[in-house]
Design a protein around this nucleic acid. Sequence first.
DNA 1: ACTATGTGTGAACAATTGATCATATGTGAG
DNA 2: CTCACATATGATCAATTGTTCACACATAGT
Lengths: 121, 121
Amino acid sequence: MKSQGNRDVCQTECVHTERVARVRDAMHAENLLLELAEVFKVLGDHTRVRILHALSLTELCVCDIATLLALSSSAVSHQLRILRAAKIVRFRKEGKNVYYSLDDAHVFNLISEGMAHVREG
Amino acid sequence: MKSQGNRDVCQTECVHTERVARVRDAMHAENLLLELAEVFKVLGDHTRVRILHALSLTELCVCDIATLLALSSSAVSHQLRILRAAKIVRFRKEGKNVYYSLDDAHVFNLISEGMAHVREG
DNA sequence: ACTATGTGTGAACAATTGATCATATGTGAG
DNA sequence: CTCACATATGATCAATTGTTCACACATAGT
């Protein structure tokens, strides 16, 4: 911790409150953009989009989705795990089944806006 | 083309109009979902999200973006190429410069909705 | 207890992708 | 034309990713 000779290090107190606040805000915005990219990355897969589209219509359990999209339960479970980790879907256990649905209205809106965009292309 | 013995092939005309229409609609929806996944895939990158966030504030040329985000012009150009191909950004040439902006309101809304979602997480 | 069923997880492999470097195009100024 | 500058592209390489297979876990019924 011998930083006496380093002029970049505060000797006593020298915090530039406003400057620090501005940088902290910028860093926070950067973090949000990073999270946003993560969300889009998770949405950016054919299989997951198909799952989310189905879930935008109604709550479904794993085997419902597997049947509906002609996928293995394993494949569906893997993708749901990713969607869960990204907080894009919710889940609810009932007996042997686990029912999934979209996490919130924002997710629904993302799907809707995206669909509107591609429909116009 | 010897398919006489194949009972799955029409001998004369046997088009099930309503059935074909239903399948065609489903295929069209599938294509849209595929395109939607492509759009999200393109949005799902930290660098591209940062570019789009900047463009959501104002139109910018390549070197503006490169300076703003501390990236090489090459890197920016590569990402803009991808964004252009996905019809997520527009561009406009003026002298030596090429100015980029978001393609339409849907793209702006996608960024907004996404930001709203991550802000709540 | 055992069995069947629904779901989750780990490993391995092929395929895709972003960053970088070098180079190419294009445009305006001198 | 030549030079400087803005932008675009191609190739390469490391890293990430989706799928598959195999197996593990949990729950309900017998």
